[in-house]
Design a protein around this nucleic acid. Structure first.
Lengths: 155, 155
DNA sequence: GCAAACTGATTAACATGTTAAATGATCGGG
DNA sequence: CCCGATCATTTAACATGTTAATCAGTTTGC
């Protein structure tokens, strides 16, 4: 819950800037990830931008139609589709980037650079600790009410 | 981004348990918040469970139909609706609670209680620092592409 | 008193999150 | 070869996030 609140507290300051340029958080993460590479596979981009495939697929369709990125299928394996940022996309990043960094700097100034560093270290350690922890699959304990909701999936 | 990953790393371990009982994270947060009070207004519940009004409104409708909570309009101000948990809801919490606490304890054990405490302190401090920080409203800088998306809102 | 402003909750409309299924391409054992 | 298994991506269907609009009830100014 604190992680959720923390993230919201941070993003609250970035959202107005992104919206003013017609971008969502997710779209911004995608463009940023693309700007760091030449081209990249969809699956790898999903990992870098921390998005699930279906969300990414929809957003790519939108950003492609806005000419901010381009796709072409890899010729050695036609299942794969290589995504790359366009000059228009790069230009947008260069436009938004400085303001974004200014906001980040202001957050770091208010919060304190030392604390910010510690927080990042602790978060990375959390990720590491829990990635090594197996997930319990809740064997028995099937709640009799588990499927009596008013709106369930499919028939 | 690290905050997002951190939260996902944690919730990954709780989701199977909740799903086995037919609950989403959000529904669980609502029931937990309700179990701590006698009854509560919708707005206050939204704050406690960290949900926006529209999401809460939908989920309340669902949980009410499943008889896990009950609503009645306050008689002194008929705009307000008071929400309370039912015996059935309480029973569900008592069923899921122990497993949930066991998972939390395992996470604390793996990550270390000291680090976990520090992380919580840092997150609370982050929230405090940033809540006092005004949001910049991105005055000018209206991107010419900001409204050329393929799917926009309304007419 | 009453019309306008305000407040609490819900509804509307669209974007994204999430799981399952479908689609199309490649790979591997027979 | 070729057929079944696997893999990358997309589509489908529903839940939730998010902003704006609506709606009913309440308060305020006159």
């Amino acid at each position: 819950m604190l992680l959720l609140r923390g993230r919201e507290a941070v993003m609250r300051h970035f959202r107005p800037l992104l919206r003013a340029h017609g971008l969502s958080e997710q779209q911004w993460r995608i463009l940023r990830a693309l700007s760091a590479v030449d081209d990249i596979e969809v699956t790898e981009l999903a990992h870098d931008a921390f998005l699930l495939g279906p969300s990414l697929s929809r957003i790519l369709r939108d950003l492609e139609s806005r000419k901010l990125l381009a796709r072409k299928t890899a010729r050695e394996d036609q299942r794969r589709s290589m995504v790359s940022i366009t000059p228009k996309g790069l230009k947008l990043i260069e436009t938004v980037g400085p303001s974004s960094e200014a906001i980040y700097a202001e957050i770091a100034r208010r919060y304190g650079g030392t604390q910010l560093g510690e927080l990042q270290d602790l978060l990375r350690a959390l990720d590491d600790s829990l990635s090594a922890m197996p997930v319990r699959h809740a064997a028995g304990a099937v709640d009799s009410d588990a499927d009596s909701g008013s709106t369930r999936r499919r028939k």
